[in-house]
Amino acid sequence: MSDLWKLTVRIHRFKPGKGSWVSEYPIQIHPDEYVLDAIEQIWAFQDRSLVYRHLCHHSTCGACGMRVNHSEHLTCITRIGDITRNGGTMDIEPLRNMPVISDLAVDMGQLFRLLDEIDFSQVQSSVLLPEEKGIQPARDKHEEIERLVDCLECGLCISACPAGATSTGYLGPAALAAIQLRSVAGDKSLLAMADDEHGAWRCHSAFACTDVCPSNVEPGWRIMDLRKKLVARRFSNLFGKDKEVAHE
């Protein structure tokens, strides 16, 4: 069993009515397992009071986002060997900019409400969605990347966003990316929602969202693209050209 690593896992805890604290757990686990497996192991053998969210364990559901060693990760596909070393520490916190329900579980209600309003389908059959054609950001290794539009609704981008911390009403990267996709798909009716101080203009262009996104959505690029569309829309509003938005 010498191929198991010895690690210390520090988990940031919170229970309503009980406040916040940090629990430390020594564990032994194979470096090829994932951070979520370590958490499940702790729950199974050491501490059943631990609360965390997870379903699919292979990056399709978007439930397992957390901050691991101070950055956002989808814990079910984050290999332990990629994040620490034998004898090392994993520091695990809930995502930021969303209310904590208990321990590592955050309330995704606000994101899901916004995405419901925007109503862009995130479950699609084809390789390249019709909406994707001609809208990919420039890339170096383009051929390696398929299915750009595949938001897991995981909230990593919201947690990583520096603007999210300064403004409670901010729509956030995932919602803005969904509005951009709708507009590319031909539906411009949601642009007004983005053209707001809490919308595309709140973004600091930090691209932290794009850095953490586990699913190639590139929300940062989409927000920049959305700004171009918003400027164009303001122009056409000014000159009364765009009938779609003129009656708003």
Binding site: D37, E40, Q41, S59, R147, S215
Partner: peptide, 25 residues
């Protein structure tokens, strides 16, 4: 096929407790 991946499955064996099952290489 699922999203940008493919999933391959599966095996089957009996186990006593399944609250945590390590993944076997």
């Amino acid at each position: 096929p699922q999203r940008r991946m493919v999933v391959i499955g599966t095996t089957s064996f009996e186990a006593a407790d399944v609250d945590y099952i390590p993944i076997f290489r």
